[in-house]
Amino acid sequence: MIKILDAGMRTTVQDFGRFGYLSKGLTRGGPVDEQAFLWANRLLDNNFNAAQLEITLGGLEIEFQQDGCFALTGADADAHLDDEPLTLWQNFDVKAGQRLKVGYAKAGLRLYLAVQGGFQVEPKWHSCATVERDSVGGLSGDGSPLQSGDTLRFQCDTPQPSRRVSWAYRSDYTKTPVLGLIPGYQYDDFPMSAREAFCYKDFEVSKDSNRMGIRLAGKALATPKQGLVSEGINIGSVQVPSDGQPIIMMHDRQTLGGYPKLGVINPVDLGKLAQLQPGQKVRFSRVEASVAQQQLRRFYQFFNVRLPCQGGDNLRS
């Protein structure tokens, strides 16, 4: 078991997400930086879907009340186990009574804390992912974030050899990332000037960004006719409302929307966007769907991601 001594800015329970309920208006949730999340589970030989804590900005302090093994990945922050400084992107053994303290992110925005075996949280509709706007998931089941005093159980397992993630696989969160845009949706309806401007011009991440969407500020893009009839919106969709400032839809997005969309960000790049602090710059370049699909296949294979099937009962209650 762990006990939350200080929940920090905002810490939530996340597994890989709640799949199969979009047609009822329930969104997916799950880690907004899938890469950092999946690395933490991989370091501990966990199932890809094992529940972790998503720590926004930092400030978390916990006490381990049993022995175990954990890993911390994501944003660059000072972390200490008791008084010992910790390296991120590595697994560690921990003894009952030890305290883990995560400082504030210096680069990047979100950290992921995994324990061996995963946190045991009662699932709702097949997932314990916390989605505040849907009032579902998390420790209390109602979508609220963790609070100090909360305790989370996990199954202690066998000790593990020490492992770390090589630098080559880690993102430098201080850099301006270039994210792939898979053209799609109404891409062909946008004026050429907007398509050109979106790729190759810099945008700044606005402070009104959250797990639903990341708002960008830049030179306003010309848009096609507004007022589409609502249609399904994928995670990573680039919506352009009439003010011409794009919004990139993240894991807690609404399931339907009616703004014109330029396409969808390459899912293997999306974690880099999720890690940008307000005011940081981002750039986009076009990527072929087939290239992004090949990258996503490799990504899922590498991390052993098995998506649940949408069987014959295609519209779950």
Partner: peptide, 17 residues
Amino acid sequence: GSALGDKLYDLVPSYNS
């Protein structure tokens, strides 16, 4: 849903799509 369910992970019908 019936023909391809095991290859899909979600289906979202809307007005015309």
